[in-house]
């Protein structure tokens, strides 16, 4: 019994160590490679540009719903004017980084895990290795470096679109004065809120992309099934683990920032 606890603890610790090692080596090897900019641009396209539509749509609807919900709650207290504060602060501090990260995991993380998993199964990763190209540096490094840029940028888009969504329901549909709404948005948000949101976004980016790539890269060691099933299992696990990691990290960072 005690041995089981001990061995599983060691397993978990080793897994975390392995993931951290994997991430650091990927970035290091990427820095040693050629054509870094070209690879980085492709990775930004994959993680950033292709996620813009989904992030924009989710951001807009989140803002719309928050405008609606908060309006009726605040109206009971007679504080409709505070709608701007409520929408802007909750988006910038919490919902923006978290929902953006979850959307990117759904869009880019799952495809990343399955793509690398298939390349592993097809021996393409071994082929890279025999050519003297480090597969981590080639496949994972550029994406990790891109995630540091893409997550904060997409979070910023999400925040702005969400605040605009709150304006649409709050001012256009319901009767909060537009000037009051925007004035409250501008006066309530502090630089610390924005800064905290971006820190969260960057950390989530690093975490999720690392987890997805790691699951894909070691799909032959970590999955209980082989072949195509192994890859699909890896993709599922990658999404589940990254989503949990995002929420857990969110709690940790929030408690440190407050």
């Amino acid at each position: 019994m005690i041995r089981t606890i001990g061995s599983s603890t060691l397993c978990v610790v080793a897994e975390f160590g392995g993931i951290a090692n994997f991430a650091v080596l990927s970035i290091y090897e990427f820095c040693c490679q050629r054509r870094r900019l070209a690879k980085w641009v492709l990775a930004v396209h994959e993680i950033g540009v292709r996620c813009v539509p989904i992030v924009a749509i989710v951001g807009l609807f989140t803002g719309l719903v928050m405008g609606l919900q908060l309006y009726y709650t605040l109206a009971r207290l007679g504080a409709e004017a505070a709608l701007g504060d409520a929408v802007a602060l909750s988006l910038i501090r919490e919902l923006g980084p978290v929902l953006t990260a979850l959307m990117i995991v759904g869009q880019a993380g799952s495809s990343l895990a399955s793509e690398i998993g298939i390349q592993r199964n097809d021996e393409q990763i071994d082929a890279l290795q025999t050519m003297g190209i480090d597969a981590r540096g080639y496949l994972v490094g550029p994406r990790l470096c891109a995630s540091f840029i893409c997550f904060p940028i997409l979070t910023a888009c999400f925040d702005l679109i969400g605040i605009f969504g709150g304006y649409l329901t709050g001012s256009v549909l319901l009767n909060v004065d537009a000037g009051v709404y925007w004035n409250h948005v501008f006066s309530s948000v502090q630089f610390a809120d924005i800064y905290g949101g971006f820190i969260k976004a960057a950390v989530f980016g690093f975490l999720t992309i690392t987890i997805c790539a790691y699951r894909g890269f070691y799909t032959h060691l970590k999955s209980s099934s082989r072949g195509v099933r192994g890859v699909s299992e890896s993709a599922t696990r990658a999404v589940v683990f990254s989503s949990v990691a995002v929420l857990a990290a969110d709690y940790l960072i929030t408690s440190f920032l407050i």
Partner: peptide, 15 residues
Amino acid sequence: GLCAVLYLAIQLGGA
């Protein structure tokens, strides 16, 4: 994206 980030930081956050 950088415009959005800067807008958030400067206009809203008052950096």
